[in-house]
Amino acid sequence: MQLINRAMAGTLESSDAQISIAPGKDGIVLHIQSTVQNQYGRAIKQSVLDTLSKLGIENAEVDVNDRGALECTLRARVECAAYRSAGIEAGIPWEEM
């Protein structure tokens, strides 16, 4: 997937996560801030990297501001931000996600 613009998805409500994603040059540059960091920080990192990898994104700047989102929410927010960044609004392969 080719990222074009800086894009966001999600909110700062409890149990949600806000993701900001922008095109990058040097691999994945990831910043994570989370209210449940001490217990789920590494799990959050893994979920975000997995999701990016599935979408074929190798270079990006990603900011995660997590407010205790479940893993499914986190993945959905990352996917949404990525598709917005790539300017893809139709033809999303829901079955594969």
Binding site: V36, N38, Q39, Y40, G41, R42, A43, L70, E71
Partner: peptide
Amino acid sequence: SIVGTPEPLE
């Protein structure tokens, strides 16, 4: 099963 297994605090 819903939230995942938390890491122990360090």
